[in-house]
Amino acid sequence: MMRERLRTAILISGRGSNMGALIEAARRPDYPAEIALVLSNDPAASGLEAAKAAGIAVAAVDHRIHAHREDFERSMDRLLEIHRIQFLCLAGFMRLLTPWFVARWHGRLINIHPALLPAYKGLRTHERALADGVKIHGCTVHYVVPAVDDGPIVAQAAVPVLDGDTPQTLGRRVLTQEHRIYPLALRLIASGAAVMADGVVRIAAADQEGSRALIQPLDS
């Protein structure tokens, strides 16, 4: 018997590219999470219209009308409670969260970052990877902790860095993998296959894909 689907909200600030991948995955009847709300800090975020068109409830809490970050977050938290949200996915949410909010949602809040953490925390990840001459780059889904771009890692995907890459071409290759691993990570968590303990996420053996490796450059 399938467990009750995890009521999940996606937090966005703009178009919500990863939001679309999560919504599409959750359309499957056997997916263990449902996208019950898309919430933005910007009432004009284009992702809200896309979510509404997909039949998802949407809401906005304008951070600009709140004097303090925690006031803004408490307003968000009240909306999340009204919608009976159990879990949060950040998808291009461009506000730093306070320790209060992170603690409130501890173990129920994940983010996706366009780099192979713990490398390249922060912004301009593709530019920095190219400047360093790395041969493999990628993306990471991780639990959110008070430190920025930190926290237990749920899933990662790697892509080759090719000669002639620009931040744009590399970014597109990484984004394709983001759209794959974010729904995967949410599925693993919602199904109980991914469990966080002692600061590490353990994945059930049945959900691991073996020892395939990405090697760049290719061995000829």
Rank of each mutant, 00 (worst) to 15 (best):
E178D: 14
A190R: 07
L162D: 08
E127Q: 15
L88W: 06
D165S: 12
L79A: 00
L39E: 04
A213Q: 15
I110C: 05
Q177R: 15
R78G: 04
E73Y: 01
A185L: 11
L48S: 01
G107Q: 12
S46N: 01
A194H: 01
L80H: 03
A26P: 05
Q216C: 13
D62A: 12
G192N: 00
A103E: 13
A129M: 03
A54I: 00
G171C: 11
G107Y: 10
A25R: 08
M76I: 01
H142N: 07
L186E: 06
I56D: 03
A26M: 00
T166V: 13
R5A: 13
Y31P: 00
N41T: 12
W105V: 07
P29E: 09
K52E: 05
H106D: 07
A190F: 03
R15D: 00
V148N: 12
L88T: 07
G192R: 05
Q208G: 14
G16L: 06
V141L: 07
Y182I: 10
L11I: 04
S75G: 02
I181N: 14
L90P: 06
F101P: 01
Y143N: 09
A197W: 06
E34D: 12
I181R: 15
R104V: 02
H66I: 13
A185G: 13
R128P: 09
S40T: 11
M196A: 14
I12W: 07
P118V: 08
L11A: 05
V195C: 01
S191V: 03
L22P: 00
D30R: 09
H66T: 10
K121L: 12
L186R: 09
P43F: 10
L37D: 04
A50H: 11
N41Y: 10
A155Q: 10
I35R: 01
A9E: 06
V58C: 11
G47L: 03
H126I: 02
I23L: 12
L116S: 11
L184E: 14
L175R: 13
I110P: 08
S220A: 14
V134N: 09
R69K: 10
V148Q: 13
H126R: 01
L90T: 07
P183L: 06
R104G: 03
G164T: 15
A26R: 05
D42W: 11
L48A: 02
A59R: 07
D149A: 08
H137T: 04
L48R: 00
G122E: 10
R172D: 15
G16Y: 08
R15F: 08
A45R: 09
G47N: 03
T169R: 14
M2Q: 13
R84I: 00
A213R: 15
S13W: 13
